[in-house]
């Protein structure tokens, strides 16, 4: 099945794309997707910024990422075990608040 991944803000430079379509096996979860992004697309454990180092992962846990599937934070779904579907849009943000 095809899944669309859209990183935002700092993560675009790190991943090197604005939007990408990935082929994943049926039944794949957010956890599976993150493994691919870390293994094949270089999503690091932490990124160095002018403002300081931004930790993205604590082990397997994406503590420095806000991940949404179809606009729903995975915390309000099944966390890392949230299932992806054909055509799912996954958006990934660094921590951001204010405004």
């Amino acid at each position: 099945m095809k899944v669309v991944v859209k990183p935002f803000l700092f993560l675009r430079k790190v991943l090197g794309f604005i939007e990408i379509e990935l082929e994943l096996p049926v039944g794949a979860t957010v956890h599976d997707l993150l493994k691919i992004l870390r293994g094949q697309y270089g999503l690091p454990e932490e990124i160095e910024l002018a403002q300081g180092n931004l930790m993205l992962f604590d082990g397997e846990e994406p503590t420095g990422l806000t991940i949404l599937v179809e606009g729903r934070n995975i915390r309000q779904l099944q966390g890392l075990e949230s299932l992806l579907n054909e055509g799912s849009a996954v958006t990934i943000f660094p921590p951001s608040a204010g405004g």
Partner: peptide, 14 residues
């Protein structure tokens, strides 16, 4: 971590 994003992108970070 809040500081980093707001510093880089201002209040429109959200």
């Amino acid at each position: 971590m809040m500081k980093m994003a707001m510093q880089a992108f201002g209040t429109s970070v959200v």
